[in-house]
Design a protein around this nucleic acid. Structure first.
Length: 582
DNA sequence: GTAGGGTTAG
């Protein structure tokens, strides 16, 4: 029995290998390659390709397509294209599949134009209009950040009835629109699908729901989620994770937790991501206790905390200034062989800097370098701020130079910290010179940087420079924010230009920028300093009516100006109202 | 088992 079955196998092997040797070898070897992993995979595929190319007669194009598809999946797009070139050089005719695979490769290499050139080839060779071709090109435009051209092509295809769009085509365009933040258009297209014959599935809903959440339109996202469910489309873990994330970003942690219960009721199991979202939200919100409970819950369910989970906890403790607890977490994660990354270290460095433990922060920075981790703009920014705040402006400048030498691009935040620190150390001219040397429009037109420099010039006793900067900002057509106005109000006050200061408070409101607590505190405090008590009262009442409280510095100026007991005083009435309220 | 998309966590 045993012998007979072995014989059968041998006979079958023999039969296949004589009848169609190339097919047999090819299919086996392709299967081996598909399941293979490791460094030689590409070389093995190329080896097989060479053998195929040398075979007479050549194998069918379908086999070449199969092999090259494998190479494309490994992301070796240029290699794939050169293989097709070899095929053509050997005079082996290609087919529509081969062209579509080539178009995809060009698109992935950011050569959409070559893709469109191949579309012309398709027409010349008389192939029919093909959905896969168009979908590949649409996707190519999307990954090249040319979403609007993708939308135009999509419209043209529909208008000229060149093809009947399918779920892939709609999905590609919807994803593209979401990617560039045109969520409304994506939603419109989704609604268009719902009305037509090609109904959207959960992936298309997910794209729009996630995009709405990122646009802080969580309630719209929840609405869409409800509509989707009503239409019988079943939400998956990605739908729920997006919604939970959106709710958390909006400070709606309780609803997020309820959503977690809902998803379980619906039979969708939360993943580690789900818990990481919650852990992170709890930490950012200040309740590390809840975060720890969430981690325990995820472990209880057999889900594994990862570097993101531990980093969130560390960040939570650092934000609360509980550095000992943060250190304990880092020990615990190391024990579990989870390697802290730059984000983890950034939290710790930031924590130490905020606690003025600059030595520890610097030591940690050295450790990062020794470990071969690359500090990013956040690392440098935190440490810069720490150095300035610890009264080490020279070390800060050195670090900034170091950052530039290492090729780490400073962000607006970095420059803000740097300018602020320099101005605090009477170096506003240097800061200004550096600002003038900035190349990017984002930096040159950053209202935040202008505000820091205006305040810096004021601090350095150069009010005229401050006023020039404010004029420059306005003439550039930039929109000052409440901070900018407040800082300028302070400049005017300090220069005794009280009329201009008061004007600016009214001006900013007209320009759609409501004065905030800082603005009112500045104007009230400065007016009191100049003994303009009646004017100060007007703004004081206004600020209280708008729900803002005088800060410590304002109170210090306020209290000495309240007349003795018995004398009628509006100021005292205001203060009494305040103190009774609290 | 020849081609096209699919996104959630710091």
């Amino acid at each position: 029995m045993k012998v007979r079955s072995m014989n059968c196998t041998r006979i079958r092997l023999l039969y296949y290998s004589t009848a169609s040797p190339s097919t047999f070898h090819f299919n086996q070897r392709l299967l081996l390659l598909k399941n293979a992993s490791g460094a030689t995979k590409l070389d093995d595929a190329l080896q097989l390709f060479d053998e195929m190319l040398q075979r007479q007669p050549p194998p069918p194009i379908i086999q070449f397509n199969q092999l090259i598809t494998l190479i494309v999946k490994m992301k070796h797009y240029s290699t794939a294209l050169s293989l097709y070139n070899n095929i053509k050089l050997m005079g082996i005719p290609t087919d529509l599949y081969a062209i579509n695979i080539s178009i995809n490769c060009h698109c992935r290499l950011n050569q959409v134009a070559y893709g469109f050139a191949l579309l012309a080839t398709i027409f010349k060779q008389g192939h029919p209009h093909d959905l896969a071709t168009y979908n590949t090109l649409l996707h190519g435009l999307v990954i090249a950040d040319r979403v609007f051209e993708a939308v135009e092509l999509f419209k043209k295809l529909l208008r000229d009835k060149l093809c009947d769009p399918d779920q892939v085509m709609y999905g590609t365009v919807i994803n593209g629109l979401c990617k560039v933040g045109h969520t409304r258009k994506a939603l419109e297209l989704l609604n268009f699908m719902e009305a037509g014959s090609c109904k959207p599935c959960v992936e298309q809903y997910n794209a729009v729901i996630d995009s709405l959440c990122k646009d802080k339109m969580v309630d719209h996202a929840l609405e869409l989620f409800t509509n989707m469910t009503k239409k019988g489309v079943v939400a998956d873990v990605i739908t729920y994770n997006s919604l939970i994330h959106g709710l958390c970003n909006f400070g709606r942690e309780m609803e997020a937790v309820k959503m977690l219960r809902d998803m379980e009721d619906e039979g969708v199991s939360p993943t580690a991501e789900t818990f990481n979202i919650l852990v992170n939200a709890f930490c950012k919100q200040g309740s590390v206790k809840d975060a720890v409970l969430a981690v325990q819950e995820m472990v209880r369910r057999g889900l594994h905390p990862c570097v993101i989970t531990y980093s969130a906890l560390i960040d939570g403790y650092c934000l609360r200034g509980e550095m000992n607890e943060a250190e304990k977490v880092i020990d615990r994660m190391m024990e579990r062989d989870i390697v802290p990354d730059i984000v983890t270290y950034n939290s710790l460095i930031n924590g130490y800097c905020k606690k003025k433990q600059i030595a520890k922060a610097t030591r940690l920075f050295q450790e990062i370098l020794a470990k071969g981790l690359i500090p990013n703009a956040i690392t440098y920014s935190s440490l810069l701020q720490g150095l300035f705040e610890s009264g080490k402006p020279a070390a800060a400048r050195e670090l900034f130079n170091d950052m530039q030498e290492k090729g780490e691009a400073p962000t607006v935040l970095t420059y803000g910290i740097l300018f602020h620190g320099m101005c605090k150390n009477s170096q506003c001219s240097d800061a200004l010179a550096l600002f003038r040397s900035l190349g990017s429009d984002e930096m040159k037109n950053g209202v935040g940087l202008y505000t820091i420099l205006i305040d810096g010039c004021r601090r350095c006793g150069k009010p005229n420079l401050a006023m020039d900067l404010f004029d420059e900002l306005l003439s550039k057509g930039l929109k000052p924010d409440a901070r900018t106005y407040s800082v300028m109000i302070r400049v005017y006050c300090e220069e005794g230009l009280l009329v201009k200061a008061k004007e600016l408070v009214r001006n900013m409101e007209e320009n759609g920028c409501l004065p905030n607590s800082f603005t009112y505190n500045v104007i009230v405090r400065e007016l009191l300093k100049k003994n303009e008590c009646q004017e100060a009262e007007v703004f004081l009442e206004e600020m209280i009516n708008r729900g803002f409280m005088p800060d410590h510095a304002t109170f210090e100026n306020l209290l000495p100006r309240i007349p003795n007991v018995g004398k009628a005083s509006r100021l005292r009435t205001i203060i009494q109202k305040l103190t009774n309220g609290s």
